[in-house]
Design a protein around this nucleic acid. Sequence first.
DNA 1: ATAGGGTTAG
Length: 782
Amino acid sequence: MGNRYLAQLTHTSLARAVHAHIVTSGFKSFPLIINRLIDHYCKSSNIPYARHLFDKIPKPDIVATTTLLSAYSVAGNIKLAHQLFKVTPLTIRDTVSYNAMITAFSHSHDGHAALQLFIQMKRLGFVPDPFTFSSVLGALSLIADEERHCQQLHCEVVKRGVLSVPSVLNALMSCYVCCASSPLVDSCLLMAAARKLFDEASTSLRDEPSWTTIIAGYVRNGDLVAARKLLDGMTNHIAVAWNAMISGYVHRGFYEEAFDLLRRMHSLGIQLDEYTYTSVISAASNAGLFYIGSQVHAYVLRTVVKPSQHFVLSVNNALITFYTKCGKLVEAKRIFDKMPVKDLVSWNAILSGYVNARCIEEANTIFREMPERSLLTWTVMISGLAQNGFGEEGLKLFNQMKLEGLDPCDYAYAGAIASCSVLGSLDNGQQLHSQIIRLGHDSSLSVGNALITMYARCGLVEAADTVFLTMPYVDSVSWNAMIAALAQHGHGVRAIQLYEQMLKEDILPDRITFLTILSACSHAGLVKEGRHYFDTMRAHYGITPEEDHYSRLIDLFCRAGMFSEAKTVTESMPFEPSAPIWEALLSGCRIHGNMELGIKAAEQLLKLLPQQDGTYISLSNMYATLGQWDEVARVRKLMRERGVKKEPGCSWIEVENMVHVFLVDDAVHPEVHAVYKYLEQLVHEMRKLGYVPDTKYVLHDMESEQKENALSTHSEKLAVVYGIMKIPLGATIRVFKNLRICGDCHNAFKFISKVVDREIIVRDRKRFHHFRNGECSCGNYW
DNA sequence: ATAGGGTTAG
């Protein structure tokens, strides 16, 4: 019995039999045989048992150590690999075991540790071989961000004469390619260096990885044309290179080119694999091409007979994303549930599917059930909570993430900041901002965009502007966020100016830009401008106005009292008026007292959104104004019968990093008596300046009507008064309300701002009101 | 016993 026989061992049962024989017969175990057994157990993923055997050897040799070390490395257990290496005496280390350890570091993305070890081995007199260079160059690819890093090892490779080893050549090319994507270098220069290596290598040296490396290099650095030229010049068709090209097209949004390459691959008879499929499925997801995606799905099911585990995993992962992006959550979940093996990507894909579909309950369940989580998992969940209005939960999760010892990435910070936007928590937002600066995340695009929105939603438009102006890179999201910030704070003209500047800088507006600019015009009463922008949408930018664009246009006309124009638009729209259209009509009618149209709009809304509380209240108020009390009774009865609950109004204010919440006629807040008392004093002063409480708003409020008096105190008044009492003189009062601000409160705040000579900012569901010196920025237009 | 190329989740 010898090594030759054991080399053919493929079954654990056989290995066990041999092993048992060794043990029972007292057979003196030769290192060769034990090493074979260790190797076997490693390969059959039973590393703990391999380790058990290893520990029994009185004096493990280099081969046994290296075998085990590589097994740890492949399994991703860098800690155990490094431990094993550290306890190995120098006498039983050699170049091979150093190579294995360098590779282990490299595969665990620790380029610096790998490089350190390379330096150490040379200092100790071990001679690097081609394997060493391939490994250490692989590690350098992870960290090289300056040309000289690549050049240093390049020199050493040349001196040692190993540039003629394909794996070394390829790894060196990879180094230049990776370094080229660092923001600190001239990427063309580094790509030229990689290309020179490629061109100067003899044809026989260039193997499939060489071609793929240079093609993928061009793809990664955005030169799709150069990549394509090389691909077209190849005589042998390597699927890997084609896959790199396809994924390049997909990443840059050239979906047609990607599908075209797929068809060519197919007709040339190149074997399509999981990498091809994942890329084209992702193309179908991003381009929203449901038909093509499901065709690919069907084709895979029909043609792939015996898919490997890796194939099943990656293709299904891509399909989960595809189906969620097409809004087919059920199909996505079906695939997810049926998968025999799931990995982190599968879990993250289904999680973000639920989050994007705003199914936050389901997302929470998935998040809890996940067997493991990555930074991405936390980030998806945190920003998902924020996007769905769960600011408090978002911040909580962010803190929990830190408690678990994870370092949040810039996206996670963006999610936390978005949570602050929801809450209007400036204190938390500013603290996060300073952490971000300390950590150097402040150049991140997503962080910048989140900060713009956060400062704007906390009432500090100018701080938002500062962030916008100091961001190193901006995208259309940044412009949209800043335009929206100005619009919400009533700076309609500035919003338009910024939009015009955006056009001057050749940034293409998207559908969101138009939603924003239309709201800006609407808030500021800029009818002519709004109509103009609406017309340019299709004419200049080829963006077909959708329902929400129309509803904003109608809103623009209605607010200005131009009901006949609004009617014309409604009738000429390519679709039937839906809820947002009626809502726009209704709110315009409310401002201008157009009862006839208002009642019609509200009755329509009642049919479309029977659970929306505001409609019943508006409708009953309008009937009440007209004195049609039987109609009032009918609407109320309807509301009761349908079990529609009025969303309770609440307002909050942040004082010294604490959020204080107030309800209508609040009796819960510990200092509420002092608040009422101070409010009384204020009203006394306000009356002297001409303030008359408007009971209309109270009378028509169905909830307070039961109290049969007109003295109900709205939550926003309590919060503002509390702020005046607690916030240092001169500092702005910032109050947030979940619903729209009440008309009497709006009027009262104008007087209060004059009486106490302070700026008061109120954020309601729709926009901001800046009260200063008896005036409001909204111009009574909201 | 050790090395180099392509994919999917924000």
